[in-house]
C-alpha cells in the first residue's frame, strides 16, 4: 500500500511584509522546484506576527501557482491577527488555514 506524499513545508521565520516577501518568494520557489512530487504545500507562518498586503499577495501567488499544478496549500498560523486577515480577505476559502 503506498502512503500519501508528505507535505512540502515552507517555513517563514518572521513577519511576511513588503521588506521580506521577495526573499521568501525566492525560498519558496526554490523549494518547490527542487521537489516535484508534492501535492500539498504547507506555508508555516507560526513565527509571523504580521502579514501585510505584499505578504498577502505572496500567499495568493503561491496558492494560484500550486492550484494550477493540481496541488493544494495549507497555511499554519499562530497569531489571531493573521487569522482574521486571512478570513476577511477570503484567502481561507482558497487554502486550508490551520491555527497551530
Amino acid at each position: 500500500m503506498s502512503s500519501a506524499p508528505s507535505p512540502i513545508s515552507c517555513p517563514v521565520a518572521g513577519d511576511l511584509t513588503s521588506t521580506t516577501a521577495a526573499a521568501y518568494r525566492a525560498l519558496i520557489d526554490q523549494k518547490l522546484a527542487s521537489n516535484t512530487s508534492w501535492s500539498l504545500v504547507e506555508l508555516d507562518l507560526r513565527a509571523s506576527r504580521m502579514v501585510d498586503s505584499v505578504g498577502l499577495n505572496l500567499l495568493v501567488s503561491v496558492i494560484k501557482g500550486v492550484k494550477e499544478k493540481g496541488g493544494s496549500v495549507r497555511i499554519l498560523i499562530a497569531h489571531p491577527n493573521i487569522q482574521r486577515i486571512l478570513a476577511f480577505t477570503r484567502i481561507d476559502k482558497h487554502a486550508e488555514v490551520r491555527m497551530a
Binding site: S53, L56, V60, S61, I85, F88, T89
Partner: peptide, 8 residues
C-alpha cells in the same frame, strides 16, 4: 493583488 492594502 491590487488594493489589498486598503482592503486591510
Amino acid at each position: 493583488a491590487e488594493h489589498r492594502g486598503l482592503v486591510l
